[in-house]
Amino acid sequence: MGDKALTIYLNDHLAGATAGVELSRRIAREHRASACATETQGLADEIAQDRRSLRAVMDSLDVKPRRYKVYGGWVAEKAARFKPNGRLHRRAGLSDLVEFETLRLGIQGKHEMWQALVPVVAETGRGDAPALDRLIDRARSQMAAVDALHDAAARATLSGHTLRGHRD
């Protein structure tokens, strides 16, 4: 069961990483003219590198990627773009909040995956344990960066708005 579970687990994370790369690139594009352009582009670059690192770990553990899961992750990210945001023809500030929250959840999941792989790499002797430690640290740094971006977006979107007269 261990090999089968590992294959399913890593392929599920590969699907999530595919969605994460697409989402982070979208965020970077949306913010390319803003004060946080350098930070969002840096995050997108790191997240793409993390996906490549996941593929390398999978190769070292002889786990074959399942294309249907990769495509599923890509499609899921595209489908998530079609959510109501209170506006018809342009982005709403709420889009930033939801996208940063989604990205944060993905990074947290990636962080947990890297941690889960530490004993697997140690037990099998395959893979690069110091690289996993660096990936764990980078995921922590990414979560902190996304938290700061989210906080700024929340202040810009939600602060100073009164809800008087509005009912849900």
Rank of each mutant, 00 (worst) to 15 (best):
D3C: 00
T162L: 14
A153L: 06
L10K: 01
A129C: 01
L105C: 08
Y68P: 09
A56L: 13
F100I: 01
L103I: 02
A15C: 08
R32M: 13
E46A: 10
L6Q: 04
Q108M: 12
A37H: 07
R104T: 10
V70R: 02
G42D: 15
R32T: 05
K83W: 07
D50L: 00
D12P: 02
E101G: 07
E101Q: 14
Y71S: 09
D62L: 10
S60H: 10
E22W: 08
L149H: 10
H150P: 05
G86P: 09
G125T: 07
I136S: 01
G165P: 04
R90T: 10
T162C: 07
G72W: 12
L61C: 07
W74M: 14
S34Y: 08
P65V: 00
A145E: 14
A144P: 02
K78G: 12
A15M: 05
A56W: 14
D62T: 06
V70D: 06
N85P: 04
V57R: 00
D168H: 15
P119S: 02
A144K: 12
P84F: 13
R25P: 03
E101W: 13
L43H: 01
L103R: 04
H166I: 10
D128G: 05
I8F: 07
G72Y: 04
Q49I: 01
V121R: 14
A152L: 08
Q142S: 06
S24P: 05
A33T: 06
L105A: 13
E101D: 14
T38Y: 08
H31P: 03
A154K: 15
R29Y: 08
A144H: 11
L117V: 01
Q41T: 02
R134D: 10
H31C: 13
R25F: 08
A131S: 12
R55P: 03
R66P: 01
S34E: 15
A56H: 14
R29F: 11
D62P: 04
S141A: 15
I107S: 00
R104I: 03
R134G: 06
C36Y: 10
A148L: 13
L163C: 10
Q142F: 08
R81Q: 10
D128M: 02
A76N: 06
G93K: 04
I136N: 01
H161P: 02
G86V: 06
T124H: 03
A156W: 05
L97C: 04
D3S: 14
N11V: 01
L88I: 07
G20P: 09
I47G: 00
A153P: 09
A76E: 12
V75D: 14
T7M: 05
R81M: 12
V120A: 08
S141P: 06
T124S: 13
L61E: 10
M1D: 11
D45T: 11
I27E: 10
V63F: 01
E22R: 12
G165W: 02
A153V: 11
A76W: 04
Q49L: 10
L105I: 11
T157K: 04
